[in-house]
Amino acid sequence: MHSLAFDISHSLAGTLVLISFMMLYQDRLYSLFNVFALHAVVLAASVAWQAMIQNAPHLYVTAAIALVFKAIVIPVALHRIIRQLGIHRDIETVVGIGPTMLAGMGLVALSMVIMLRVTAEADALAREDLAFALSVVLLSLLVMVTRRNAVSQVVGFMSLENGLVLAATGAKGMPLVVEISVAFSILIAFIVIGIFLFRIRERFDSVDVGDLDRSRGERG
């Protein structure tokens, strides 16, 4: 029999996984930002809940960062950048939505199998949290791999970081969580400013090693 505390944190983490799935099928940048904002809000709620049940007030800082910075500041800034730079608003995907969703399900199944098996002796809360966190991390990686726009890759990176924060807050009493989330926020701010300054207007075709090789006359 699980307690209420467990149920709530469990369902918040589960929601985060579902929202990660939602990211996979967005084909417009604006809607991707909205989904990401939602992702950050749920993360904030989840972290705040962990702060309460673990009696760890410092985690409220992380929750506040997630809420203010990631759910509000970053999406607004990205909206403005897109408008000012005139970036394409459609997202080009490498693979179709169907296969991507199937791959996503496979990844979630994989993370459940791995994490639930090896953490059999850890306490139930941390266990499921870790499994969900790994799912979020893997789904975000999938977003980064299947998108070609630099901006949507950044969104993928930010949701990946949300997954890591979820894992870190789930591990009871883990030190440096707040510092890590602050560091990540600074990093993200740099990236967003970097997109703007360097005018990464269009896309990098992929993160495939072949492209630059070709452009430098190394192949074919």
Binding site: V137, I191, I200, L212, R216
Partner: peptide
């Protein structure tokens, strides 16, 4: 080319960042 190289480095580096932190946790 330099920006693309930096971007690729950053994206793959962030995968590394994620996995290493997860392992640390």
């Amino acid at each position: 080319a330099a920006l693309e190289a930096a971007w690729k480095y950053f994206i793959l580096g962030s995968v590394g960042i994620a996995f290493a932190l997860f392992g640390t946790i």
